[in-house]
Design a protein around this nucleic acid. Structure first.
Lengths: 188, 188, 188, 188
DNA sequence: TATGAATGAGAATTCATTCAT
DNA sequence: TATGAATGAATTCTCATTCAT
């Protein structure tokens, strides 16, 4: 009579924890032993859920991407006014900037580990999704959405490297104002 | 009368090579043996020039920072017209975007390795230098310079992660146009 | 349900083997690889049982000390006549002189490695135990016991360095005679 | 025109310093680099005076032995009364106990490094010299001299390992008294 | 004679992975 | 399914030794 466990639930618990550890220490600097300890399991158990260490990184990337997409869609859902959406998005970014820091670091680790097309591909989808989503959501051109995403990426990165100088909150406010003005102009 | 060598020259040759290797594989994924092979020396020699592996990262960061500052100052030197400077800076960025990719990756490795204040401090100076330099060079407010730097950081990062979507060249052109227009307006 | 092993038993098997290897080659001249080979394990396993190389030395010292105390006490146990005890002790020394050679060498390695108070402390207890034990066991003054122990130490050392000249057996016999005479005198 | 240096003098200076360093840290734990630094020379220079690291140990042993013999002979020279000699020898031991500690440690390092007959042979001469010298100097039997030397060795060793318990000075006094009494008896 | 830069073998230690229980 | 003991390759770093100057 085997023990009944929620396989996927445990897997995701482990991934969630890894997202944070990998981010702060770097994938390469975290040992399997450390992951086991931090997740309250054992090395043997980890190898039940994941093929090998790299597979954790791989699954983590897929998991986080999916989670992000879903969350974005759920957030926008049912909000029709562009102004409201803009409000929503800016407040969302303020609250989740740390998570996007993790994401960027994860992407870099992923790229360096896979060092090939797979990584690029994965992140490509990510970007494209957000560019199109923002373009549609905010009713702006794809070109403008690209610049917006680029800027947001810069925001995340600088807030990660030089939190003192680049206050993300502040800069998001400025951005919000800029976009709001642009919306108004568009309406006129 | 020991063997006479240009200690600093050798040191910098090694650092220069490490800048590129660390960037593509990540500091933690490059072994001392590999560095020795890539730089055409031996592990023993490396430890003659550097206290330990971390010291390579440390010295590399200092070296690159200094080199960057000097180059920027030399570039601007003797160019008085703001338009010309804008031209200069945009073309500079186009030519050196890869190097700034390396730099960002280095900064991340540095932060993760030192995992503390030291890293932040080093990068803080870097940012501050460029924000002030751009503010003065292009005759724009510090606030605008911050946004500009943030955007440039985003540019570097996206061109690194999704080179297909975010064409740095293209985006720099757009940015250039934006800044040029702003300058003109300022003149009027 | 991990693999079930008698952790302490394995640990002691390793220590027992190290006692002999360290003694003949010196702690510093024995590599972890060599210990692994000699004990029939692997380097990884050694680090499963010991924190690091120095920890082997440390645990070895503790282990040997404890083993020695217990053996001495068990030997004396139930023997009431002083003459019999003297007989017992001298024959014990004859049989275990090699082990005391190991012990002295271990103590020296320990002192040099720890190079501090810890080492002194450990050996201090050892000495004190034997001085008091001999004093009580043989019914002699502490001062005389000290001299006896000093002499025995000299015996072990010389038999180690110049086995040809200083025949331990012979010298123990002389010592035995001396002590026996002293006992008799005390009785009178 | 080559620099004129007193080759032997420098060599002995180095050996003297090594005697002390080896003693406290152990031959194996002292690197050539460390010897160079401690003696104010360079690794290259050391290899001018000594064939290799082991040769330092070898020459050191020979040097110390010779120095010891000469000193002993010079000390005894011209002192005819046995009582005076005894006085001389005990005070000599009190003053030089540390040096004999060094010597024992050196002998152990030597034995472990050579791990063969050479070492034994070297120390054999040492012992024999002292046994005979003491026998003649103090007018005691060789057997007694052997016991005396054994005891002295124990004294040196215990004062090294447990300086707190075994006060060498004190024990030498006791020994001195014992021997003095024996002398008197012999005279009667 | 004197220096210390250069070397690579070998040291201690860590790590992903396997496997008996 | 879960555990952690076992493994040995690979890592960082040290060291005796050589050699150009």
């Amino acid at each position: 009579m085997p023990k009944i466990v929620d396989h996927d639930h445990i897997r995701e618990k482990i991934l969630e924890r890894c997202f944070s550890i990998f981010s702060s220490k770097g994938y390469s600097n975290v040992s399997i032993r450390e992951i086991a300890k931090e997740t309250g399991t054992s090395t043997g158990t980890l190898y039940h859920y994941f093929k090998n260490k790299e597979d954790i990184l791989e699954q983590l990337f897929v998991y986080i991407r999916k989670k992000n997409f879903n969350r974005y869609l759920k957030m926008i859902e049912g909000v029709d006014s562009v102004e409201e959406r803009l409000e929503l998005i800016t407040s969302f970014w303020k609250n989740h900037i740390e998570e996007y820091q993790h994401l960027i670091l994860l992407a870099i680790d992923y790229k360096r580990t896979k060092s090939g097309e797979d990584a690029i591909h994965g992140f490509h989808d990510f970007m494209e999704f957000y560019i199109n989503a923002l373009s549609e959501t905010l009713n702006i051109s794809v070109q403008t959405a690209k610049m917006l995403v680029t800027y947001l990426m810069g925001l995340v990165l600088t807030s990660l490297l030089v939190p003192g100088i680049m206050k993300a909150d502040e800069q998001i406010n400025v951005l919000h104002e800029l976009l709001r003005l642009q919306q108004e102009e568009g309406i006129k």
